[in-house]
Design a protein around this nucleic acid. Structure first.
Length: 335
DNA sequence: CATTCGTGAAGACGAAT
DNA sequence: ATTCGATTTCACGAATG
């Protein structure tokens, strides 16, 4: 459905591309345009056609840190930074499985047995307690969901921090690990301004709707999210509908020409709507979808309501109910 | 014929009572 | 806890081109 990075990673090996001025600049497969470095939502976006290339971010920074001048010049390697999304924060030691020393020489029989014993106890220690296993399972789930939603590393780490805080506050009791993990990812995606809808999170989560639950979104994840935001004292702002535009437009599977024009028009439509306070009380997703359809009309494109509705998970009716008004306020604002 | 438009019923939600 | 109003969605049929 969405285009992922698999197509773009290949020409990293092309020597011609190594000359580019920034490590992030690449060329779009679709239109040959320059690809922007990540925008504020952590998504790689083509400058020309607006195609979302890849939502997962690669850290191009140095893996070393220097505390004294000679450290910096030597580029001494000191290991990766701490990671909140690994249950031991990435700090644990592992013993190599090869029975060789650092020079590659095979070990003596006596030393091999010693290493075997050490490996065994190291493993036992790492999986020691029940809570460690719980945390590992939970953070694996956070990682899985984040990756399925194309969220970038910073968002995933935020979700992981949230989960640890939930654990501290005993918020897991009565809920499944999967539910809390999904709720943490949902919360983090909003905090990091690359929001995913509850519906999107629910679709990739392993939280089943109850048999009696007819609502399209998971009440469980929503309740967990409310509880988390309340207990952790998070002041959650309403989602800015503009943050949905890139993703929604990319979701329209028909090839959209000149995406940036469409997106900026939709942005202006939303800005105009805010000035008349039209947006108050309306769902952000509905506003984003309606603004996109209004922009489609304003720029004379041949894309149907149905397609817009399907790409945004907003009903056709809701789009119908709003896009005229949005077009009107936009047009008034232009004069 | 495909698409858009309008409608009433029904559910969910927040604010007010 | 209940009521009320606004919003959203569904199912359907009518209007439009």
């Amino acid at each position: 459905m969405t285009r992922q990075s698999t197509e773009t990673t290949s020409h990293t090996h092309n020597p011609n591309e190594q000359q580019s001025d920034s490590p992030n600049s690449r060329v779009c497969d679709e239109c040959g345009g320059r690809i922007n470095s990540t925008d504020s939502h952590g998504e790689l976006i083509c400058n020309d056609c607006g195609l979302v290339i890849s939502e997962s971010e690669i850290d191009h920074g140095p893996e070393w840190r220097g505390f004294e001048t000679e450290d910096k010049t030597e580029h001494r390697r000191v290991g990766p930074p701490m990671r909140e999304d690994m249950y031991d924060k990435g700090l644990a030691t592992d013993i190599d499985w090869r029975d060789t020393d650092t020079n590659g020489n095979t070990l003596s029989e006596r030393n091999r047995q010693r290493m075997n014993r050490l490996r065994k106890w190291n493993k036992r220690y790492k999986k020691k307690s029940q809570s460690d296993r719980h945390l590992k399972k939970a953070l694996d789930e956070v990682r899985r969901i984040s990756s399925a939603l194309g969220l970038h590393t910073q968002t995933r780490e935020t979700a992981s921090v949230l989960y640890r805080q939930c654990l501290d506050k005993d918020l897991i009791k009565g809920r499944s690990i999967e539910t809390v993990a999904a709720a943490c990812v949902y919360t983090a995606s909003r905090q990091c301004e690359s929001p995913r809808t509850l519906e999107q999170v629910h679709r990739v989560s392993r939280v089943h709707t109850q048999q009696t639950d007819h609502s399209p979104v998971s009440t469980r994840i929503n309740r967990a999210y409310c509880k988390i935001a309340d207990e952790l004292g998070l002041a959650m702002e309403p989602v800015d509908p503009r943050n949905y535009l890139n993703r929604f437009v990319t979701n329209i599977d028909q090839h959209v020409t000149n995406q940036p024009e469409l997106i900026t028009t939709a942005q202006d439509v939303l800005t105009a709507a805010e000035e008349t306070q039209y947006h108050v009380g309306k769902a952000p997703t509905t506003l984003a979808a309606s603004a996109i359809y209004a922009a489609i009309r304003l720029t004379d494109r041949d894309i149907q309501q149905k397609e817009t509705a399907e790409a945004t998970d907003v009903s056709e009716v809701s789009i119908r109910n709003h896009y005229r008004k949005l077009m009107d306020t936009y047009n008034q604002n232009q004069q």
